[in-house]
Design a protein around this nucleic acid. Structure first.
Lengths: 341, 341
DNA sequence: CTGAAAGCGCTAACAG
DNA sequence: CTGTTAGCGCTTTCAG
């Protein structure tokens, strides 16, 4: 598909009786060029709808103005919110974004990483898959001097800028709030032990309890391997059947909280009067169910924006830009699943 | 950031005492080149990790292997599912995808269209914003001989390949099923009159009713301008307070259906025994609420795949590929909000 | 079967 | 202030 002949610098130069380089410089308002010539060229260019051939420019500058974004899943509220932030910041700064999914699989992550490498992106933002435990496949980017920024799901030991959410403080706030509202026997449905997010949330829970001198009972903690509604339901049942059931449940995820609420409704245990519930993630569903779900909001959009800022800084300022780690705060969102004093 | 010097054809040619053109051809196993030379070159290339400079290749071929995708919103289950399909098919065929959001605004749509045009993408897939009523801003693509494919939200008069969901048949199936389960007084909370999706769904509703010789009462139809939960709630109340309330409600969207179910629960009207409810879209929430929501599933992923297939065909076969319109069927998903006979 | 050479459109060093 | 020139890495005639 040959395009209709696109106007080139050469064409303009010929028509205007100038040199190609003069035209090139004039279009960028180079100080060397007289205002007169600049105007002449720009007017001509505008009139004839001159569009620089980006392919040529990029080739010349060996820059694509494309950045790669690797995320575990696209159809996912949190991740798509991150993407949204990345897009906004990148487009704003004249960069395009190539999005790839790893489908939470290491093998796919490796595949797309290779593809991005071949596409010669100017930089990469990545949120690691659940299966990823080392970063050998990502070192290639650094070897090729393509900057990488890690976001949300990261490997500490991989020396790049990082942007994460403060799970610890989000969890602390949630539990602290529960206790402040008079709940005393707070349980925690946590995530897997090897997942950093889960550990941080658990730490927030534990420290809030300690701070208030409340005991942390073994029985009040369950591990949700899959973080599904079903697990929430099951563990809620287990705990509510304890001799001394909890009066509040802090869940590692909204979906788990949903399962909890469902069990409680079935058993006619009133939320928030008898049992308070707080989730984590701030999914849309939290506003939709009744009672509405209190939760911890993770600033996905800001995460995406910040990661992009760090990446573009790396791209443009190279090694002079340090590998900082940015920790964004999570906000407690108070809805009806916790009683108000 | 100068990259560590990348191996080029020239380097290989020099090392091997060959001409650049020979190396180039050898790497593509050109029939002119002797097997011997081919092996020599390929081995050398592999050993030294030769990676062709895509920037140069693209420039030469004036092809970017990038396609643009313009969608109204990214943080949206249906659209992100479409994107997912596009990504899969495009990546599979060696294309990257540049994703842009129009935020349902014509002004943004124009802006990103211009950006894509400048990026010299090889083709564009677009799902129009709600505000878009003409396609003057998109004609530029065709003028520049950049193929366009429309998906889901389309303008009929804009002559490009199109991929859409059969809203009509989805709606028809839903209402037909309701009637088959013994509901007789079926109401419809529809979308706006100027939106094609809404009209098609309404048509499906109307024809199913007619087919079964059931009357379509004015009172049983309401227009949801925003398609929110609140509207569902409000109109459900209005209708259930009619002298002769409906015994089933078919909603233009799951969210509206949710509002309906909420009202019914509040009033202790049993779903599905007293009133049956069907939504449209198959959002995740439908599986989560109780009773689970019957709905019509729109094949977003397939939509994305098909649109990409059509686009790549256009890109590679140009005008010999006709501007067909593909209509994908929507599937009725039966859950607990409709009684089973 | 292989090599030499031109050129894609643009930028930038150098020379007036 | 402007023009000349070289060259980015690759593909592709055209000649051997």
């Amino acid at each position: 598909m040959a395009e209709k002949h696109q106007l080139t610098l050469k064409d303009i130069a010929r028509e205007l009786g100038l040199a190609v380089s003069t035209v090139s410089r004039a279009l960028k308002s180079h100080p060397d060029i007289s205002d007169e010539t600049i105007k002449l060229v720009k007017d001509y260019a505008k009139e004839h709808h001159y569009v620089p051939n980006l392919l040529a420019v990029n080739f010349r500058k060996s820059k694509t103005f494309n950045i790669g974004l690797v995320i575990p899943e696209l159809v996912h509220q949190f991740f798509s919110t991150i993407i949204s932030g990345v897009l906004q910041e990148a487009n704003d700064k004249g960069y395009n974004v190539l999005i790839c999914q790893s489908n939470e699989k290491l093998s796919d992550e490796k595949k797309v990483a290779q593809a991005l490498l071949n596409s010669r992106v100017d930089g990469v933002i990545i949120s690691l898959s659940n299966e990823t435990e080392d970063y050998s496949h990502l070192k290639e980017f650094l070897d090729a001097e393509i900057p990488v920024v890690q976001v949300d799901k990261i490997i500490e030991g991989f020396d790049t800028p990082k942007v994460v959410v403060n799970d610890y403080s989000g969890a602390y706030q949630a539990v602290d709030y529960l206790i402040g509202q008079g709940y005393q026997k707070v349980a925690h449905l946590r995530g897997r032990l090897i997942v950093q997010h889960s550990n941080e949330r658990h730490r927030g829970y534990a420290e809030a309890m300690e701070q208030h001198k409340l005991p942390i009972k073994e029985d009040y903690i369950r591990i949700c391997d899959l973080q599904t509604e079903k697990e929430g339901y099951t563990y809620a049942r287990e705990m509510m059947n304890l001799p001394e059931p909890p009066d509040a449940i802090f869940c590692v995820t909204d979906l788990v909280a949903l399962g909890v609420m469902e069990y409680l409704r079935e058993k006619n245990i009133k939320v928030p009067e008898e049992v308070g519930v707080i989730g984590f993630s701030n999914w849309q569903l939290g506003e939709i169910i009744r009672p509405t779900l209190s939760t911890v909001h993770q600033p996905g959009f800001e995460l995406g924006v910040k990661a992009t800022e760090l990446l573009l800084d790396k791209i443009n300022n190279g090694s002079s830009s340090p590998n900082i780690k940015v920790v964004l705060d999570a906000d407690l969102i108070i809805r009806d699943s916790v009683r108000k004093l």
